[in-house]
Amino acid sequence: MEYNPKTASAGDRLFDIAVYAILTMAALATLYPLLYILSASFSDPMAIVKGKLWLWPQRVTLDSYREVFGNADIWTGYRNSLIYLVVGTTINIVMTTMGAYALSRKDLVGRHALSLIFTFTLIFNGGLVPTYLTYKNMLGLYDNLWAMVIPSAVSVWNLIVMRTYFQTSIPYELQEAAFIDGCSNIRTLTRIVLPLSMPIIAVMTMYYGVAHWNSYFTALIYLHDGWRQPLQMVIRNILIQEDMSAMTGSGQSLMDQMLKAEGMKYAVIVVSSLPMLLMYPLVQKHFVKGVMMGAVKG
């Protein structure tokens, strides 16, 4: 039965109008702040401060971007964040795939007990301070690369979603056939299961990657040295603590510096967020296939 607007009752038509109206408003309310930021980043800070900017850039200039790209801390932060992202996500994907594959195998003795042990950590944990002391004093996770990537090596949620994907989307007979042909588990995983799992791998890469790029908490607690700080910690100084020492050219008037800082905020938001905002369209196609399946059935 196809929906036909011409034969629809008055109530149904009213319903449709309401649905479209509410969703349009929701979309505009979501989009407007983002567009404002984009416009502000290309505008003369004076126009922003005076309230001249509503939607389109006012007195277009690239000064704010010049300020951002001229800032050494931002470059260091960008480089550090990239390293944490690449190393961290690689560890995430390898660990999650191995764990999820093993848990998806019916012949893994004790797999239910293992699932329970893993899931329990979702509802109870050591708490901030015992965790901090253990990581720092017993595991040596402090002020080094490992402190940024090991604590979040596996997410229980993602492990469950991926296990469910392996169980529901990859025919068990295919794996059985591989075993009969003499394949080991590792060979079955890399030759049979993984090539069929690209949608879920893409989605997991996005999830883990965004989490690494956006996190500041681990750095706040486990990093001490300034030169190791990720981008989020650097922009925290600019956006939230309004640290003006990050500004170039100290010989200017206070007013000038304040204006520059104001413009720089918007440019720094764009520069730091764009990579992640561009990531979603890349995996969108897989997102629907991959996660929905794992999530709904899990």
């Binding site: 929701a26 979309a27 979501t30 989009l31 983002l34 965004v210 790029w213 956006n214 996190s215 500041y216 989020q232 922009i235 925290r236 956006l239 939230i240 938001i269 730091s272 967020s273 992640m276 905002l277 990531m279 979603y280």
Partner: peptide, 11 residues
């Protein structure tokens, strides 16, 4: 509607 989800807490 998805877009703001990809912004960090700091941003």
């Amino acid at each position: 509607a998805f877009m703001p989800h990809f912004l960090s807490t700091v941003v």
